[in-house]
Simulated scan of single mutants.
Amino acid sequence: MQARPANRADVSALSATLGRAFFEDPVMAWMLPDADVRRRRLHKLFEAMTRHHHLSRGGVEVVLDDDGGIGAAALWDPPGQWRHTSAEELRALPAMLLTFGRSVRRGMVADDAMKAAHPEEPHWYLAVIGSDPSVRGKGLGNALMRSRLDRCDAEHAPAYLESSNPDNIPYYQRFGFEVTGEIRLPGGPALWPMWRAAR
């Protein structure tokens, strides 16, 4: 089981996989509280993020499931490239409005809180990782983590992520990430910034 770089032809399928992966995520449920709306729209968020930011930076990877579909995906940004440019944000705006509708303010609040807590030291940033619920526990996420963390280690680069689900913290700790604080969303759940020192 190996991760491979994603290409433009993968964007739709990997976005659908991430939409299913994050359906029950506490932060996503706070931003899109209506389950039917979340089921119909969440993939559009990941499609916009991938298409208008992450893919061009070369950090998007996927792992295929037993049927040859995309079972898991990770969106990484290389050191110094985690910030979205104004042009990227403008191109992604229609999809963000379509995804969040009247909840768009919550999405902006979460984004601003994450930006304020983001470390300045150059690092690989794991913005999103998820696997389809039908293949969880089969090692697809592990393959994605190992692929990029092996590169981090080869480059002696640190890595950073925010865990939006407290249940996932021990999983990330197994890869060497440590909790460095808490990002509390006003009237909503928390995220936990996690840092993995260079090796």
Rank of each mutant, 00 (worst) to 15 (best):
F46W: 04
S163V: 08
M96Q: 10
G69T: 07
F22G: 01
G80M: 11
G139T: 06
G68H: 01
D10E: 13
S164M: 12
R105I: 14
M114K: 08
E120Q: 08
I129W: 00
E121S: 10
M145S: 07
E88S: 12
E47N: 06
I183N: 05
P166G: 09
P186T: 08
H118G: 06
G187A: 08
P5M: 13
E61I: 01
H52N: 12
Y171C: 05
F177W: 02
R83Y: 05
P79D: 10
L185P: 02
D67H: 08
R105N: 12
D111I: 06
S163N: 06
A73M: 05
S163Y: 03
P166A: 12
S131C: 13
H84W: 15
S15L: 04
Y171Q: 08
A74V: 04
R41C: 10
K138E: 12
A21K: 04
E182P: 04
H53T: 02
D67F: 03
W30V: 07
H123F: 01
A127K: 04
E155K: 08
L161A: 07
V63E: 01
Y160F: 15
R4E: 15
D66I: 02
G130W: 00
D153Y: 03
E61C: 03
G176P: 01
S12T: 15
P94N: 09
S147R: 09
P158S: 15
V27I: 15
H156M: 12
R136S: 05
A143L: 03
D65P: 09
M49T: 00
A159K: 03
R41W: 05
A117H: 08
G188A: 09
N142C: 12
S164A: 14
F175S: 02
D10P: 02
E121D: 15
A197M: 08
A35N: 10
E162D: 15
D36E: 13
H53A: 07
L149F: 00
T99M: 11
P193M: 05
H123S: 08
P193Y: 03
E162R: 02
E120Y: 01
I169R: 05
L98C: 14
F23E: 15
V179H: 01
H54G: 06
R20N: 14
R174A: 14
R184W: 03
G176Y: 01
Y171N: 05
S56E: 13
R83A: 12
L191D: 00
R20A: 15
D132R: 03
R8Q: 13
P26K: 11
V37W: 08
D111C: 06
R148Y: 02
R57S: 03
V109N: 03
R39Q: 15
M108Y: 07
R8E: 14
W30M: 06
R151S: 04
P122L: 11
P133L: 10
K138Y: 02
M96G: 07
D36F: 05
R91K: 13
A197D: 09
E178R: 10
H118K: 06
A92F: 03
D153W: 04
R39G: 13
N142S: 12
A35M: 11
N165I: 04
P79L: 14
V11A: 09
G69R: 06
A3R: 00
P170S: 09
H54N: 10
